[in-house]
Design a protein around this nucleic acid. Structure first.
Lengths: 197, 197
DNA sequence: TTGTCAAGTTAACAGTGTTAAATCGCCGTT
DNA sequence: AACGGCGATTTAACACTGTTAACTTGACAA
C-alpha cells in the first residue's frame, strides 16, 4: 500500500507543523505564551492531537532544544571543515554561536531555559548539547593537548564567556546596542583564543 | 490609637511572610511551583488576600528580585569600605556575587529570569540593578579612569564573565563539581582584574 | 437594635497541561 | 444492503493557574 507511506509523510508534516508553530508563537509572543491549545488552533486541530505527536509539552520543548543544538553542531562542523587553523576555528565557531543566538533568540532561550522558556528535562542530558560540547573540546584539544581536566576547564571558560555575553547582550538589548555588544564579544573571544597558545 | 500602628506592624509581618513563603517554595520546588494559592495556603489565608499586598504576581517577583539586587548592593558596599585596593575590591565583589548565587540560587534565578523564574517586568528597570551597576562601574573607573563608553564595555565584560560562569556552574551542578567551577571562576576573575591595569 | 465598615472568604472567569470517553466516517465482511 | 470494527478526531472533564467581583461575617458606633 502506498497509502501507508503517504500517511507517514502527512504525519511528519503535521509533526513539523507543530514544532514550527511553537517556535513561531515563541518568537512573536515569548515562550510564556506557547500553549498546547494555541498550537492546536494554529494547525487546525484540537489539543489532544498534539499529544499524538509529543507525549508532553516538556518533550516538545526538549525536541526543539535538541534541534537547536544540532543546528549549532552542523554549523560547527561546517566551520571545522572550512578552516585548519585552530585559532580561526574556535573564533569562527564563537561568532557562529553569536549569530545563531541573535537570529533565533527564542531557540537560544529554550536551549538554556532563559526568559520564560522552561523545560523540565535537564539541559545537559540533551544529546545535542553533548555533541556540541565534544566538538568544541576536540578543537581546544588539537590546540593545546593537555589533560582531560584542563580541557574541561578551558571549555567551561570559553562557554561561560560566550554564554554570558550572549545572554546579557539579549537582556540589555535596548540599553546597549547589539553592535557594541558584538564588538566587545569579538574582542573578548579573540583575547581568549590568543591566550590559549 | 496605638491599634493603628499595631495593625501596620501586622500588615508588614504578613507582607514579609508572603515574600518569605514565595522564596521558600521556590527554593524547595523551583519557581515554576510558586503559585498565589500555595503562598496563601502557607500563610493561612485565602488567595485574594495576597492581592491586598501585591497587585500581581509579577510585582511580587519584581520585589523579590529587587531585594536580591539590594542585598548584593549592600554586600558590595561593605567590601568597598573594607578594602582600598581597587583590584582587591573588584575581586572580592566578584567572589561575593558567586557566594550569593550559590547560597541563594533561587534568588539569583529570579534576578535573571533563569530556570523557570519568569517576571514580565524588565530586569534592567529594577532600581536595585541600576544601583549595583553604578557601584561596579565606579570601582572600575577609580581603577582605570577612561571614557564612559570604555567603562561600560569593561563592566559588560566583567558582568558577562561572572554571570556566564555562575549560570553555567549552576546548570552543570551535577556533572562538574561546584568546587572546580569556583576554582575556574576565581582564576578567570583574577586574570580579568589583573588585565585591567 | 440598627447601620456601617473593614477583613476575609467564596465563587467565578478565562486560561493552562493532560486524559478518558465519545463521536464520526470509512472499509471490509456477511 | 446492513453490520461490525477501526482509526482519526473531538468533546468533556480534571486539577491547576492568575485574577476579580460579590458576598459573608464580625465588631464597633449611634
Amino acid at each position: 500500500m502506498e497509502t501507508l507511506e503517504r500517511k507517514q509523510r502527512s504525519r511528519e508534516q503535521t509533526r513539523s507543523a507543530i514544532v514550527l508553530t511553537a517556535k513561531d508563537i515563541a518568537r512573536r509572543e515569548g515562550w510564556q505564551a506557547v500553549s498546547i491549545r494555541k498550537i492546536a488552533d494554529a494547525i487546525d486541530y484540537s489539543a489532544p492531537i498534539v499529544y499524538e505527536y509529543f507525549d508532553s509539552k516538556d518533550i516538545l520543548l526538549d525536541e526543539i532544544r535538541n534541534d537547536g543544538f544540532r543546528e549549532l553542531q552542523h554549523e560547527y562542523e561546517r566551520i571545522k571543515k572550512l578552516y585548519r587553523d585552530p585559532e580561526k576555528r574556535l573564533f569562527e565557531m564563537s561568532v557562529a554561536q553569536w549569530q545563531f543566538a541573535m537570529h533565533q533568540p527564542e531557540i537560544y532561550q529554550v536551549m538554556h531555559n532563559l526568559n520564560g522558556a522552561y523545560c523540565n528535562r535537564p539541559i545537559c542530558e540533551s544529546s545535542g548539547m553533548e555533541a556540541v560540547s565534544i566538538l568544541i573540546r576536540e578543537i581546544i584539544f588539537t590546540f593545546i593537548p593537555k589533560s582531560q581536566e584542563s580541557i574541561q576547564k578551558l571549555y567551561f571558560e570559553w562557554w561561560s564567556l560566550s554564554h554570558g555575553m550572549i545572554s546579557l547582550a539579549l537582556m540589555l538589548r535596548d540599553r546597549q546596542s547589539l553592535e557594541l555588544s558584538e564588538q566587545v564579544y569579538r574582542d573578548s573571544i579573540r583575547r581568549f583564543v590568543r591566550g590559549l597558545r
